[in-house]
Every structure is written in structure tokens, then in C-alpha cells.
Design a binder for these strands. Sequence first.
DNA 1: ATAAAAAATTTACGCGCGTAAATTAGCGGT
DNA 2: ACCGCTAATTTACGCGCGTAAATTTTTTAT
Lengths: 341, 341
Amino acid sequence: MSPREIRNMDQFAAVSGISRPTVSKYFHNPDSVRQTTRARIEAAIEQYDYRPNIFAMNQNRKLTKNVGIVVPLLADPYFAEIARNLEQRCIVAGYSPTLFSAHGDPEQEVAVLNNLRALKPAGVLLAPLGRASDTEVLAKFCDDVPTLIFDSSVAELGIAFVGSDNQQFTAHITDYLCRTGEPPCFFEMKNPANPNAHRRRHAYLAAMETFGHSPHVISVAGEGWGFEEIGRVGGHDAFARNLFPTNTILCSNDRLAIGLLTACYERGITVGRGDGSTVRIAGQDGHPHSRYTCPPLTTISHDYDAVSKHAADTLFAAIDGSVERWQSTRIEGRLILRDSA
Amino acid sequence: MSPREIRNMDQFAAVSGISRPTVSKYFHNPDSVRQTTRARIEAAIEQYDYRPNIFAMNQNRKLTKNVGIVVPLLADPYFAEIARNLEQRCIVAGYSPTLFSAHGDPEQEVAVLNNLRALKPAGVLLAPLGRASDTEVLAKFCDDVPTLIFDSSVAELGIAFVGSDNQQFTAHITDYLCRTGEPPCFFEMKNPANPNAHRRRHAYLAAMETFGHSPHVISVAGEGWGFEEIGRVGGHDAFARNLFPTNTILCSNDRLAIGLLTACYERGITVGRGDGSTVRIAGQDGHPHSRYTCPPLTTISHDYDAVSKHAADTLFAAIDGSVERWQSTRIEGRLILRDSA
DNA sequence: ATAAAAAATTTACGCGCGTAAATTAGCGGT
DNA sequence: ACCGCTAATTTACGCGCGTAAATTTTTTAT
């Protein structure tokens, strides 16, 4: 078939009968060349299986088509899922996404950002670690690279913030719990890594006041990203010390709830909304795993699609030069009623 | 501090008082230059915060320091965990890892491999999708790029295979279940995506014969990577049709077991090894989540550390030119006794 | 048909670094 | 002081492509 291996764009241009600059133009935007030219180039690509050298492409270009996607913890299926979603959107939009995880470690987050710089990305979709993040490093990075912050907002950094409306999350599920049984206590980490946790606590307090109930916040100790274990150990401790004045517990997030469910099991406490149950437990996030807990977890779910779509679209618009003032978009969640509450 | 921004290695060499080729040498191997020279370069790096342009570095080099890590499904915490582990080992060894996921889709696996080619990686750590993989594409890729296959072996591809000893996994846990109660049925997917599933079924059959019990394999329908849902739906079906002749169920993997646990909950079947329980359920994999099911799942765990260490070390050795014949290494698992069985 | 606009080509240079070859400087040991 | 060795420097070229400017060709509009 092919007379010889095509080694570079010069040779490819020669065999396809098009000049190299035009070929180069084609690879940057296939629509930017004439229909007939495009067909000839694509026929040659088919025949010779030529792909331009990405290193040479990016080296001498002010801006690449690279997009970085950074999440705090890829081992958390929530972030894995949203990362997958964002990745697809980048590909569809013609960008080359690269996935990074800070693995829950602030130092690795800094390292990731430094590596990312070297990729000269057109833009970055960044979900910061939160409280543990090095804010100065983040700010400097956002100054240098078009960055959209998602999931958790640390400051008015980057081109915009897109996340979930945590106030609405907690208000909504607190409302549901109040209407269907005893008012909920609020179960959380004492020093949450994620700023969303603070919003949720505040929203809980506000909602309880609105509904005329006295709030009860149980803050358990624990550092890091092992939320299930923190919830389990903290749950045991809280039950042992009789810290829950009502039979209903709203957890700050699903992973904490999952740990609490385990603690309940281990203590022989039945969870559910049925008559035979001792406590009701609800989470927040719509974690991929929440469907499969025992009992399945009542929660309020992020709108994964809407968040990732808005985040990606906002970044792409910014890359294309639409300069807008920094703004924060928070998307409402959807209540998922299951057996746990 | 710095008089002006350092734009390239020429300028950096100038301000550090070293010639550019020597600086270049330093960046490839800091130990390859004289101690005093190294100190001067590192002082200059500190002062000017210079980092060589990775695109220019890689473009004109036969072999890069890039390593690709490919997993079939990053949303599965098992793969996320092993990917994290491998990533760290690459960094420590001086390589630049990049993470890819096929997201359970054979076409995306092919796309990932094509993108990976463009990175001219020194090596690749690849966990294939398995049955759904395009074997021809994999074979061709392994011919072109030093590739170590891990987790699931499709053929004698690449430089070697490193994974878990599924025979031992199933034999060991089957043995445990037989010794402590009724002999187990085997709960699996009818058309498992992963070849390890076949090994486990065979090991189950062999073990049951060895122990003098008649085997019972329950194969449930379902395609794709939503194992929990497949286990849940299949579990409901199997219970409804009374397909389990004994009170003990060994699942082909933990995610299937998690779905089965949910089905049990939904049918009011109590799971555990205690007197009040109806069935015992065990999984296989040591999935990160298995600790937090209700009841916590008895399982046999991969030796994450050993597998990833052996995989990484083997790849690095191959990159460094140690040519050995293809070989398969299978590492034993560790039984984790919890409440479910 | 003809002019104007759009697309393609030619020409030419630069990006930042790898790398090879020949030369010079630095080092320790006798 | 000398020799021999290693490390560093100088010189020079190439990688594969981006990109700008000037020119020619093709398409579209009138």
C-alpha cells in the first residue's frame, strides 16, 4: 500500500499533493481548508496513517489544545465520575484532556499544578483539595493559566466557579426529613477538608431555625480523606456517648454516611424509615455507591451532567476569548429517596 | 532577584555559568555531571525557577521518560487505587506517568492506545479491558511500545504479565468457606468481561472437587461494568428461583457481592456468619469498599503493593534493556475475614 | 466575463532542545 | 612536575512543526 513510512509533515504533504502549511492548517482546524482539499488530506491520512508529532506541534505554539483536569482524589468514585464526564466533553470539543489527582495530598496538588504548567495548557478544570490547598500556589497558577474551579470554591480564583448549590442541598433534604419524621441531627467532620461542608452545616442550622427546630451538630474527629472510616469510628463514639437526641441523622456527605451505616450495623442498630427501624440516616452527594448500601442511602445528588457541562462550556468560552467577570454558578441537586430515611 | 525571565536553556546556561550541553546533560541525569557543577546548576534553578520545555525535550529524542498507565475503568476504586500506586512508583523512578482510562469501552481503549503512541512513551503499564479488548490492536501496540500487562492477561502479550493468582484466591477462600460451614455456591456473571473470572470459576470447580462437594455455579445475565447492579438484579432473580442450594455464596468479585448484599437486604435476607443469619456471602478482590458494606464483606484481597511493585519494577527493568523471555507472575492474595461469611 | 474575495502555495525563519565530534580544562596519583 | 583520565566546553547541525509575508490560484459575486 504505502510506498514508505511517512516520517513528517513534509513527506505527508508531498504524498497528499498539498503544501505543508495547508496541511498544518488542516490539522488545527479541518474546516479551515477547502472541502476538496480536506477530502484529499483525509484520504491520505487514511492511506498512510499519518499523525503529526504532538511535541513538535506544541513546542512552537503559544497555546496548545491541552486541557488539564485536576481532582483532589481520584479514588473517590464521585470525582472519578465527574472527571470522566469532563474528559468526554473536552474530547468532543477538540481538546486533549489529561487527568491528574492530588491523591488527597496538598503537596501533590502543588506538584500536579507544576507539572501541568509544563504542558502549557489552554485551560484547566480544577477541583481543589479545599482547606488544605496552598492558596498562594493556586492563586498564582490561576493568574498564569485559564483555570475554572469546580466542586469546591476556595476564593474568587480563576475565571469562574461551577459547583453544586450546597445551601439548597441541605435545605431541601432537611426539609424532607423534618416533614417525614423527627428533625435531623447533623453529622459531620470537625475539620472538614472541603469548604462545601461548612456551607452545609450553615444551611442545616438555617433550615432548622426556619422550621422551628433546635439544631444538633455532631462533629467527629478525623483528618484526611478516609471519610468512611471517620464516619464509622465517629459514629461508634457518638452512639456510645448518646450524642444523637433524635432518631434522624443527616450526614454532611455520603461517604460519612456509609461509614455511619457500618457503625450502625456493628452496633446492631437498624436503619431505615420503616417501623422496625431505630434510626434514619441520610447523606448528601448522590455518591455512585449510595444505591448499594444496606439500606440504600437516601441522599441528595449532584447534577453531574449539568455541573460538568457548565464547567466545560465556561472554560471553553474563556479560552475562546469571551472575557466575563468572575462568577459563581451553583446548581441544584435532586433528592433521591431510598430506604435509609 | 532574577534580572530577567529565563526563557530557554541557553539563557539559563548563561546565568548559571555552565555550558548548555552540560546543563542538558544535568537534566537527563543529575549524577552525570561533576558535584560542583551540579551544585551551581541547582543553585541557579532555585534562583531562576527554570524548567526545560518538555515538548522541546521530547521532540528530538528517540525515547522519552513518559510512562502510560492504562486501566479499564477508573471509576472502580480498585483500579483507582492500583493506578495511584503505580503512579507513585513511576515518579519515584524518575518517569512521568500519565493516567488513562478506557471507561469500560473497547473503542475508548483503542483511542487511548493511539493517543498514548503519540506520547512516545518509554513504557506502558496496561490493564486491558479483557474479553472486549481488540486483541489485534493490543498486540500491535505491544509490538511497538514496551508494554507490561497487569491485572488481567489476554495473551502472551507485551514484555510480561503481573497479576494476582486467581486460582489461589478462589481455592483459598473456598477452602475457608467449606471448613466453616456449608460449601459455597459460586455467583458470577454469565459473560464476564474479565478473564480472571474464568480462572476463578475453574478454581472453584477444582476446589469443590478436591473437598468432595458438588459445585453449584449461578451465572447471571448482564453486560458491561455495572457489576453491582448486575449482582443485585441477578441476586433477586436467583433467590426468586431458589437457585442457591446451600446457604453460602462465593461471588466472583466484590462488586458483584456488594450488589448481592443489596438484593439480600431488599428481600429481607440476613447475611452473616452468626446464628441469626440466613446466608453467608463472600467476595474476591479486597475492594476498597468491602470494609464498609453491611455486613462487612469477607473477601480475599489482592496484594496491591506487591502487584504494583512487581509490575513497575519489571517495566523499568525492560526499559533499561534487560531483555527477558515473557513471563507471567501471579501473586497470592490474603484472606480478610469479616462478618459476611 | 470580470473583479473581488477566499484559499492555497511558496519561501523563509524560528522554537527549545538533543546530540555528536573535537577540543580544552580540571583532577588525582606518582 | 608530569601523565592520564574524566568532565566540561565549543561548535554545529537537526528534529518536526508553527507561522508570517508575499504570491498565485481558485472560488464566489456581480
